[in-house]
């Protein structure tokens, strides 16, 4: 990166570190932080919409639909989330390939599961065997996003379902008295009001989602955990210009600090958001705000 980095052996401590921390592999390490942020930015809205759909389904008056919604909420509860992560990554991949196989190769007659193998025709492979490296990486990242969304969608559905039930019933009766249909009541009265009840749960969920991002490592993504392990390991002068002993502890300490900072910032922002949403609401938070103004 810097011009003086040509011969690392001759450098002082400070300059050595400035060269070491800006070399090529470290750039990949920093890029993996971006991956985490992208994952969060994509997963959060998708999971929220999954959750909204789940909560709507659970409220439905049609029994199969409400069972589906309640089942979706319930199933993710009793089972560890990493089990779901490990399961969905393979299951989704095989599901996609199976569907493509049915469409693209209708005259294939060999069974797909042969003993310990899962074989689809080469056209149905995802991504195609000939695809460049970045397509493979994007595809596995895409699978990870869907997996995260399904699991956290169930949590969000639980929170939103609770929020919908917390809206005072009188509000809904009033809407009915005004002659609104069920659909109108839902969209015009229930949905605008439920957010303030759901927000504590949702902000908790956001913090949980942040803390779940290192699990990307288990899904085979080259994320921050992968690079911290990789870069921290002992390096001898035979393989690199920057030999160092086992520093993995320090790399993980850095990750720990990163997550602590991220959590703290999120907490502060969410607290502000809660204050804003509580304005004029008939909740204890809203009442406290009113008193502040009048006092």
């Amino acid at each position: 990166m810097f011009s003086f980095c040509a011969d690392p052996d001759a450098l002082g401590t400070f300059r050595w570190f400035s060269c070491y921390l800006t070399n090529g592999v470290h750039m990949s390490f920093y890029l993996s932080f971006v991956k985490v942020l992208v994952l969060l930015a994509v997963t959060a809205p998708v999971a929220l919409s999954f959750g909204f759909a789940g909560a709507m389904a659970a409220r439905s008056h049609v029994f199969p639909v409400s069972w589906l919604g309640k089942g979706y909420i319930a199933i993710v509860r009793g089972v560890p989330d990493i089990a779901f992560f490990l399961f969905f990554v393979i299951a989704l991949d095989q599901g996609f390939e199976w569907m493509r196989h049915q469409i693209l190769c209708p005259d294939w007659d060999a069974p797909i599961r042969q003993g310990n193998d899962f074989l689809v025709c080469s056209n149905a492979k995802l991504p195609l065997g000939s695809a460049p490296q970045w397509v493979h990486q994007t595809y596995s990242f895409f699978l990870a996003v869907i997996t995260f969304s399904i699991v956290f969608g169930a949590f969000a559905a639980n929170v939103l379902y609770g929020g919908m039930r917390a809206v005072p019933h009188a509000q809904l009766e009033t809407a009915e008295a005004y002659g609104m249909s069920r659909r109108q009541t839902f969209w015009r009265v229930l949905v605008p009001q439920m957010w303030v009840y759901a927000l504590p749960g949702l902000s908790n969920l956001w913090l949980v989602l942040i803390k779940a991002t290192p699990l990307l490592f288990l899904l085979g993504i080259e994320d921050i955990v992968y690079w911290a392990r990789e870069l921290g390991g002992t390096k001898t002068s035979r393989f690199t210009d920057y030999p160092h002993p086992d520093w993995r502890m320090w790399y993980f300490l850095f990750l720990l600090v990163f997550y602590l900072g991220f959590t703290r910032v999120s907490e502060i922002v969410l607290e502000k958001l809660m204050v804003r949403l509580s304005h004029g609401q008939a909740t204890t938070g809203g009442e406290a705000l009113r008193k502040q103004v009048t006092a």
């Binding site: 803390k211 086992d246 990750l255 720990l256």
Partner: peptide, 18 residues
């Protein structure tokens, strides 16, 4: 509470290792 358990495991393991 503010950091992922997964990272805590990693950190603790490498700490004990050193």
């Amino acid at each position: 509470r503010g950091s992922p358990l997964f990272i805590q495991f990693f950190f603790a393991y490498f700490l004990f290792l050193s």
